[in-house]
Nucleic acid binder design. Structure first.
Lengths: 350, 350
DNA sequence: ATGAAAGCGCTAACAC
DNA sequence: GTGTTAGCGCTTTCAT
């Protein structure tokens, strides 16, 4: 752990400038400085400018901590990213990372700071800590995992929170998510319309979002009177080499398939690599559709057909919903539209 | 812009619990509560436990803002990621994102919070804002910057700052970076040893880090008495389709080459795609080496030989250096070792 | 072992 | 237009 104990105190010797110093140098009271720096018209323009210049030249900036305390305000939002405690893997998922970027943008645009923390997905208690300690005015949680009840409890306590994830039954907290049922439907329909009939599904159905994609998958099959074959459904985690394991499993089952719908692009890519080792051609022998449309999907060979989640919109929606909750407004969960990005990995060849 | 103005105040009606409330409920003074919660032995054990239980059951946590003000302490570190103001692209670079993850881990381990902000790379003044406003005790700056002088100025002002990047002349601030000269050398030597003689270089030499890799490239050529051909050096940005543009340029120059050293994996991947379109085989006709070893490098086809930067180590080094600076210790810039990851894109075929 | 009081850096009545 | 004063939520002498 190697926990540092000492530092934390800001540089002892060279004391930080504060309002009183500016006041003294300008020959006025702190009230005047305070007013001047906040642009109040109560203070004489000439004085105001003089003070502003002085502050600028000395790189003085109002201490936000003190200001917040006094004003009982706060412009910081906590963004919490759970990680899998066995692998610590999660911040490496390209999709989560893109969402982070879009959140950073949305928050910056609205003048909020972003406090980022990773928490062990088994210790989700601590997600409300930034709020409880007054560090942040609310929490954005990326990925709801399997912690439905805990999230309900936190919400009941009055913690402003918005979760990126699926909408579940008896849910008190607000979720923003993409329409995973539609995503699964879109992907599967696309494969069916291109002549595929035995479509394997790769994903961990225990995760709510994946369960929805699976539902979409089933709907599409049903809509086209295709039989559902449980043998074609392979559990696959998002981790490291989930794709390899899933492909091994599918191969072991010795079942015929002409397409793969994978619940993440990474899964799809590693699956394609295994297919290549098995001398199966993509898309000729097996068409593949991924999920997320990460940046590398289009650089892959073959370029990957995939379901795009609206990341920019997601960041905005998460931030705006949180701010509305804080603002006491009624906020409803949102399901953002998904989109099929058609590339060569599922090109028609049948 | 759609700037929100109202909220910022924390939920008006249901007042947040504070120490005075706990004190009243426990029938003691706030001093006692304060002491109890900080585990002081001055307070009777029985009382201490009673107060602790009460606080826990009410989800009361000490208000960090007030505590910090009183104690003049702070356990927040600012992490600043500049973005290119024309494209806003930078948070999507997988490499920067991995570093972010490792920073988050290192900070969490040491009990620090991470304040994440993106700033326009043309407005780097605001880098020190989190420090100037007292929000953070120091700044870690990640990434692209040609802002040497500005950073020197900020450092001279006494802002604790550590920068991820190359070490330059007359540099007052501390940099942590990987050994880019060695990286360039490693990649080029590898290609040479596998029989390649006309190695093209893709990268924007105006960036200090790329310049170092280029130096390594030249050193390797010289060491093996291979001629340097300026025609083989192609400027390529890290952006979007820098690879496509660079490949077009190289093709237009109509010069022979049997290998590519690309300054990022993304660059390498898009270049390989173009090569494929031109019916050139990788690695048979052209061997390719990338840089960064992003997660997808090994999923690519062919799996990409690349230079790995020590990301975990980097996060630790950045954080520890910053804490040492704050701690008034002497801190020297660090050059972390790079490593060649050999995969098929540069396999020997000559 | 506990409480009263002062003060961290700032803002906002309220005075003048 | 500017200064005086009280107080945001907490910790810590200094009393008791």
């Amino acid at each position: 752990m190697n926990r540092k104990v000492a530092p934390t105190e800001s540089t002892a010797d060279q004391r930080r400038l504060q309002m009183a110093d500016i006041a003294r140098l300008a020959g006025v009271s702190t009230s005047t400085v305070s007013r001047a720096l906040s642009g109040s018209k109560l203070v004489n323009e000439e004085t105001r400018n003089r003070i502003a210049d002085l502050a600028r030249s000395l790189n003085y900036t109002i201490n936000i901590g003190a200001q917040n305390l006094r004003l009982k305000q706060n412009r910081t939002v906590a963004v919490v990213v759970p990680y899998d405690n066995t692998t610590r893997q999660h911040l490496s998922d390209p999709f989560f990372l893109s969402i982070l970027g879009s959140l950073a943008d949305a928050l910056t645009d609205r003048g909020f700071d972003m406090l980022l923390s990773r928490v062990d997905s088994e210790q989700l208690d601590s997600i409300s800590l930034p709020y409880d300690t007054g560090r942040a005015i609310g929490v954005i949680l990326i990925g709801q995992w399997r912690h439905h009840d805990q999230l309900n409890k936190i919400t009941a306590r009055g913690v402003p929170i918005v979760v990126w994830g699926a909408q579940l039954e008896r849910q008190m907290y607000v979720t923003i998510g993409s329409d995973n049922v539609a995503g699964g439907l879109l992907a599967t329909e696309h494969l069916i319309q291109n002549g595929r009939k035995k479509i394997a599904f790769f994903g961990d159905v225990k995760l709510p979002e994946v369960a929805s994609r699976f539902a979409g998958y089933q709907q599409a099959l049903a809509a086209h009177q295709l039989p559902f074959d449980a043998q074609l459904v392979v559990p696959a985690s998002f981790l490291e080499n989930g794709g390899n394991i899933a492909m091994a499993e599918l191969t072991a089952r010795n079942v015929e398939y002409d397409a793969l719908f994978c619940c993440s692009d990474l899964l799809a890519m590693s699956a394609i690599n295994i297919l290549r080792d098995q001398n199966k051609l993509v898309p000729e022998d097996v068409a593949v559709v991924g999920y997320d449309d990460i940046e590398l999907a289009r650089y892959f060979h073959p370029p990957l057909t995939t379901i795009r989640q609206p990341i920019q919109t997601a960041g905005l929606a998460l931030v705006d919903s949180l701010l509305n909750i804080i603002d006491q407004q009624t906020v409803t969960p949102q399901l953002l539209p998904t989109e099929l990005i058609f590339r060569s990995s599922s090109a028609v060849t049948k």
